[in-house]
């Protein structure tokens, strides 16, 4: 087993997703000329910017060994609350936007706090959080609210031109900034490495003197922040807010994270991979639209199957690793081990 192969292996799930996306897109472009247009490609980012933001936040939560099921509900709540504040209280979007981000972060912090202090499973707490957020959205308004705030409208329509006539929205820029920040956080800060450590073995992380509790609360806080930001982008896109928006989106986000190569049990994966998870999700929708014959529900089925494949591959990997670890190599191949190690004082009998 050569060294380079080993290094490759931890990237395998993410590389597989990237290949899947590229291959899928190329095949699509050959089949449907419309897909070869640059704008179709950029639309993929425009349409999925909010999902990318939400999934990025969720990636960190999942890496820490947790889960956040409240993503979709917080998006809906943010959209309604923002719309209500702008339309019915006349607050400027410049105040509403930071307020909403603060609300999302506070909501995440609350959930993280309960998970940490009361040791309740994250899955239960965020489930309740999901109910709560969606319910609150309907407390604010039962109907959809259209947003007329001028700055919000400008932001929504702003186009950033790239090659030729093709463009992306501001949302894409926001999404990429979030992605970059989270990549930095995950791989180049002590906080990020603590997140990975917790996902690998929380008990050990605690015994290693890492601030597990604080990190956990912070992870959910960032998750809530991302959901709120995704909610703003979502409502900015549609220029309205409604409690029914983003129904079941948490599942799409989880699927994107898993397809992006992150282990659902935590500790293994890359924030960068999540982007491709989101893109694969978008690509399937695009392919189905271009195909024209397949109905939209195939998206869900295909996403479900892809998620399954990734889960199966990862669980196979995990059991392979376990088996390797359980087989004691030393006696069978002392030579292999000793090339890296100083020869022990007494050679093995």
């Amino acid at each position: 087993m050569s060294r380079s192969f080993k290094i490759d292996r931890k990237y395998v799930p993410m590389l597989a997703t990237i290949c899947l996306f590229v291959a899928g897109y190329v095949i699509g472009a050959i089949q449907y000329p419309g897909m070869a247009r640059p704008q179709t490609f950029f639309n993929l980012f425009i349409d999925n910017a909010f999902l990318l933001i939400a999934s990025t936040g969720l990636t960190l939560v999942i890496l820490s060994g947790g889960i956040d099921l409240s993503v979709g509900a917080v998006i809906a709540l943010t959209s309604v609350a923002a719309a209500y504040l702008m339309e019915h209280t006349g607050l400027s979007s410049l105040i509403v936007i930071p307020l909403m981000l603060l609300m999302g972060a506070a909501f995440g912090a609350l959930m993280g706090g309960i998970i940490h202090v009361f040791k309740v499973q994250p899955f239960i707490v965020t489930l309740a959080g999901m109910f709560f957020a969606r319910g609150m959205a309907f407390f604010i308004s039962l109907d959809a609210i259209t947003i007329t705030d001028p700055f919000y409208r400008t932001l929504s329509l702003a186009r950033i031109h790239l090659i030729g006539k093709s463009f992306v929205s501001v949302h894409v820029i926001i999404a990429f900034v979030v992605l970059a920040v989270f990549m930095y956080l995950a791989h180049l800060t002590h906080f990020g490495r603590t997140v990975y450590a917790m996902g690998g073995n929380e008990q050990s992380a605690r015994l290693m003197g890492l601030a597990v509790g604080r990190t956990k609360v912070l992870v959910y806080t960032l998750g809530g922040f991302c959901s709120a930001l995704a909610g703003l982008v979502f409502s900015n896109n549609l220029l309205s807010g409604h409690g029914l928006y983003a129904n079941g989106l948490e599942m799409e986000a989880i699927a994107a994270v898993i397809i992006g190569g992150t282990l659902l049990t935590g500790g293994v994966g890359y924030v960068f991979g999540t982007m491709f998870g989101v893109l694969v999700n978008g690509l399937i929708q695009v392919l189905i639209i271009f195909n024209g014959e397949l109905s939209s529900w195939w998206t869900r089925i295909v996403i479900g199957l892809l998620t399954l494949v990734f889960i199966l591959v990862q669980s196979t990997f995990a059991s392979m690793r376990r088996r390797q670890a359980s087989i004691k190599p030393a006696r069978k191949r002392p030579a292999a081990a000793s090339d890296g190690l100083a020869a022990p004082d007494t050679p093995p009998s």
């Binding site: 990975y196 450590a197 996902g199 690998g200 073995n201 008990q203 050990s204 290693m208 500790g267 293994v268």
Partner: peptide, 8 residues
């Protein structure tokens, strides 16, 4: 029991 993180 080794109190380290195998994934790091």
């Amino acid at each position: 029991e080794i109190n380290l993180c195998p994934n790091l």
